[in-house]
């Protein structure tokens, strides 16, 4: 039971070590500055976002009884995107940025995105509650709200000045380089609490796999539990999106891959998804650092590598099950 955890954690630590330490000499002042103000924040972003997106998705797929669920489907990501578009239009485009202090500017984009994510999340809850709260209505209202917000972003595309257009495009494709210590400090603290609460409820997620009735007979207040976990997920995804933009595909592919190997026990899958997600993003950071001349958007990397991998995974079927005893 503990073996995959130790192996995956060791791999994650190794990746972090490779990313942080590889070519930099810490002796020079420049080296130290880069280490503290660029590399460390990027690594923290990888950890926070990887854990946030992947653990949340793993839980969300069980909660919504839908193996296709990922944060995009809840419409939370699109709420943040709309706010980002608004930010680039109002603050940068109209020049309000000139009147704001650097400190405020450094946290304004993440803060606005987070508010956007929470607003769209709340809207989806309210809507699904109005039409009868259950997994299907959450998905339907999520799709409806995210379509509206995507349309809003498309409208803003029309009026954005060209320079801001590029900023927005990069943000929408996800970037690990946006983070700074102010926003990370808040994100880390909140994410830790959320992860703790989510990992605590994984055995209840297991019960839910057998349907609401059975979970209820086991003594779980299903409605309250669903609401609590959905709020946690919204918070985690909102935080991730607000510091790194929307990151494609890892939320879908990683829990699936792990389930193929280890089965459906959520006490394993939810935390392992988080560790793996953080590892994959750190790998993206390493690729960006050493193998490319310009920093590539993360979604570009995750989708380019992830989608073919996913197809391979689907074709491989249950053969991966045999990996259970080796990894």
């Amino acid at each position: 039971m503990t073996r995959p955890f130790s192996i995956y954690s060791a791999a994650l630590l190794l990746l972090c070590g490779v990313y942080l330490l590889l070519p930099w000499e810490m002796n020079s002042a420049l080296g130290q500055h880069i280490f503290i103000n660029i590399k460390l924040p990027i690594m923290m972003t990888c950890l926070v976002v990887g854990f946030g997106v992947c653990s949340a998705s793993a839980a969300l797929q069980i909660l919504l009884k839908n193996p296709l669920a990922d944060p995009g489907i809840l419409g939370i990501a699109s709420g943040a995107s709309a706010m980002a578009a608004l930010y680039f239009l109002l603050i940068n485009g109209l020049g309000i940025a000139l009147f704001l202090s650097p400190l405020i500017l450094s946290v304004l984009l993440p803060a606005m995105c987070f508010i956007g994510a929470l607003l769209s999340g709340t809207l989806i809850f309210k809507l699904s509650k109005r039409i009868g709260f259950n997994p299907a209505t959450v998905i339907l209202s999520g799709i409806a709200i995210s379509t509206i917000l995507a349309a809003a972003v498309a409208w803003l595309y029309l009026v954005l000045p060209p320079t801001q257009l590029q900023n927005l495009t990069f943000w929408l494709m996800g970037s690990l380089n946006n983070a700074n210590w102010y926003s990370l400090a808040v994100a880390c603290a909140v994410m830790l609490v959320c992860l703790f609460l989510l990992f605590q409820s994984t055995h209840h997620l297991n019960w839910l796999l057998f349907g609401e009735q059975t979970a209820q007979v086991k003594g779980l207040d299903v409605y309250r539990f669903q609401r609590k976990v959905l709020m946690l997920i919204a918070l985690m995804v909102g935080l991730s999106v607000s510091i790194a933009g929307s990151i494609a595909f890892i939320g879908l592919i990683i829990p699936h891959m792990l389930r193929r190997i280890y089965g459906y026990n959520n006490s394993k899958i939810v935390p392992l998804s988080g560790i793996t997600g953080a590892g994959v993003l750190t790998l993206c950071a390493i690729i960006n650092e050493h193998f490319t001349s310009i920093p590539l958007p993360v979604s570009l990397l995750t989708a380019t590598i992830g989608a073919p991998l996913f197809i391979w995974l689907l074709m491989k079927g249950t053969a991966l099950h045999s990996l259970r005893n080796t990894v």
Partner: peptide
């Protein structure tokens, strides 16, 4: 305990895993 009339299981879980998870 209650054996429901309609069973809901949405994912490919093995029999053994069912017992462990519940």
């Amino acid at each position: 305990c209650l054996l429901p009339q309609k069973h809901q299981l949405y994912f490919e879980v093995t029999v053994k895993e069912c017992f462990f998870m519940l």
